[in-house]
Design a protein around this nucleic acid. Structure first.
Lengths: 254, 254
DNA sequence: ATGCAGAATTGATATTTATCAATTCCTATC
DNA sequence: GATAGGAATTGATAAATATCAATTCTGCAT
């Protein structure tokens, strides 16, 4: 568990078609080449730390494989997972507009993970040439803002039980079926939902007792969606789409 | 208390120099004219509601005078103040990149308030012509993202006491002097800090008992800044500046 | 000045969630 | 298949904050 297992791999960059990624979809061949030239492929193992809170932020990233955990730490050692980033999604690109960008979160690999690191400076130059790409970035950030507001909403207007129920309802909607697997260990998920693991366990078992779900390890089956929804009384503003010509393309599955 | 007191006023638009506002600072005369032509000045009285959660968002706003409260509501009638916007600052501009933008918050005037409403469509066209202005928008959104992450941090890794202490430390830093007034009624501030008014009162009196502050109505005097800081053990990532050429211009005082 | 209404405070109590400690359950590795 | 070690669960208890109810304060309008 440490940085030493992190390896770079140029072939990752060569093999990928960046045009398939929302942020790069409007760039021409020459521009894609330019950004690729200064990009690095990265392999990480479970628990590897890519950067810590406060590290200078000169690059942003695209997840190809595995998952990335972004979290904040308190002085007394508590950790709050801000986001779990899945393949096909970029992160840390919003930082390049700050004067002396530094990462506001710690970045850790969940499982074996592959990603590409892009150079902020080069991408900023590209942005100056491509209004369309600016719009991609703005759309991207707009969605992210929405999610964070929703998160604050959940934290302040919703109980821990409500957040867990809300998460399960979200998964149900997202996966489109009653049976699914949690995409992360329960401890990570608990932190993502701002609940202690013990409390998370108790809440889940409360749902089981009510006959709302059945749980076997990380495998969930929702038995009574309406019952769950009653616990998750949220306004539910999330899931909004981007404006005309700005549709998000999610690829790589997931 | 209602929309009927909201009045529009073209002269507000004519009188203002938009170039002084961060977001518009890179536009040329013709562009400024174009946006002004479809803008409206608005006067509001205390408690007036400009829009509700879910309203179609076709405009964004600049506060000229007074204050704007942006809040979310839960089904059981609880309110969480997401932000209090002061003169010189814009709000709701991040929404125009969404497909069918709707306001994720309710907007209420705090006291007598004047603002300008800008048309999303026209501004979007302007953005297509001005990469510089795109950069303004991106810088703007980047800062906003930071603030929201800080907010989530405070909510999850900090106690209510810590948040109140943190707020007071922030004010101390911002105002640059030990004596200052709370810029909003205590109830609004409490909601902003996600604390019930009763709890807020008790926490504040706890600080008084410790000899950290003295309070007279909305007037605060910090007697022991270090003592306060000890209560507010935060990482403190906020207050980051924008990148080169992207400095935020705060004007209109405040 | 006087009185009124909303805001703020205070007290008593209830709830929620965290904390601490002890098991039990997986799963990866030998 | 055995087994070690982290993850998850369970139980008992504590702490923080919310809730409910009753005053008191304050600023504004008469």
């Amino acid at each position: 568990m440490g940085q030493y297992r992190i390896t770079s791999d140029r072939s990752l960059v060569d093999s990928i078609d960046l045009r398939k990624t929302y942020l790069f979809s409007q760039l021409n061949d020459e521009q894609i080449d330019r950004i690729k030239k200064v990009s690095t492929g990265i392999h990480m193992e479970d628990g590897d730390v890519l950067f810590e809170v406060g590290n200078k932020a000169a690059r942003f990233f695209l997840v190809l494989e595995g998952q990335i955990k972004l979290s904040r730490l308190s002085l007394n050692g508590n950790e709050k997972v801000i986001e779990v980033v899945s393949p096909g999604h970029t992160f840390a690109e919003a930082l390049m507009f700050l004067e002396q960008p530094s990462y506001p979160v710690r970045c850790v690999a969940l499982g074996k993970t592959a990603l590409i690191a892009f150079d902020n400076e080069v991408f900023l130059k590209l942005l100056h040439e491509s209004t369309e790409t600016c719009f991609r970035v703005m759309g991207d950030m707009s969605l992210r803002l929405r999610h964070l507001i929703k998160e604050i909403d959940d934290l302040t207007l919703q109980s821990a039980t409500g957040r867990v129920a809300g998460y399960l309802c979200g998964m149900l909607l997202f996966k489109g079926q009653e049976r699914f697997n949690l995409e992360t260990p329960k401890g990570v998920l608990a932190s993502r939902l701002s609940v202690k693991p013990e409390t998370f366990s108790r809440i889940l078992h409360g749902f089981i007792d009510e006959g709302l779900v059945s749980v076997k390890g990380g495998h969930i089956e929702v038995l009574n969606a309406d019952g769950l929804r009653k616990h998750a009384e949220s306004a539910g503003i999330c899931g909004q789409r981007l404006g005309p010509g700005n549709q998000m393309n999610v690829q790589f599955g997931n």
